[in-house]
């Protein structure tokens, strides 16, 4: 089995905080502990204000091994309201990345 990862399409991440709270519930993390944290970038470009969000899996992310072991998706991926997160084999996610701009691949473990 190859390494697993999270592919995030940040064209569509709306910054809704679902992944953060899904993770906290799953792992019973205390306030201040984040398995994944959404970062915000607001910047004036030449024509507009760019507003982008990107969730970042931290050292506390274990890719929900307790869920994926019996075929469930990681909690953040399952609940993502924008459905912009994909879990899978890194080698396959790279192929997805070939097809879609504004994506980032994390392999936390």
């Amino acid at each position: 089995m190859g390494r697993k990862g999270l592919l995030i399409d940040y064209e569509y991440c709306t910054g809704c905080h679902t992944c953060e709270v899904a993770c906290k519930q799953e792992h019973h993390y205390q306030p201040g502990q984040w398995g994944i944290k959404v970062n915000e970038l607001v910047m004036e470009t030449f024509h507009k204000v760019a507003v982008d969000y990107l969730p970042f899996p931290t050292d506390l992310c274990d890719l929900c091994v307790q869920r994926t072991a019996h075929g469930e998706l990681p909690s953040c991926v399952k609940h993502c309201q924008a459905a912009c997160m994909t879990y899978g084999e890194v080698s396959q996610l790279v192929q997805e990345m070939e097809k879609k701009a504004k994506t980032v691949l994390f392999a936390p473990k």
Binding site: C16, H17, T18, E20, V21, A22, K24, Q25, E26, S75, K78, H79, C80, Q81, A83
Partner: peptide, 23 residues
């Protein structure tokens, strides 16, 4: 624990942070 219901046609398993913090 509270999770989204994948079978539901309104939300298709998705859930907001307020729902996930129900406990």
């Amino acid at each position: 624990r509270v999770e989204g219901d994948e079978q539901h046609p309104f939300s298709n398993g998705r859930a907001c942070p307020r729902l996930l913090a129900m406990t």
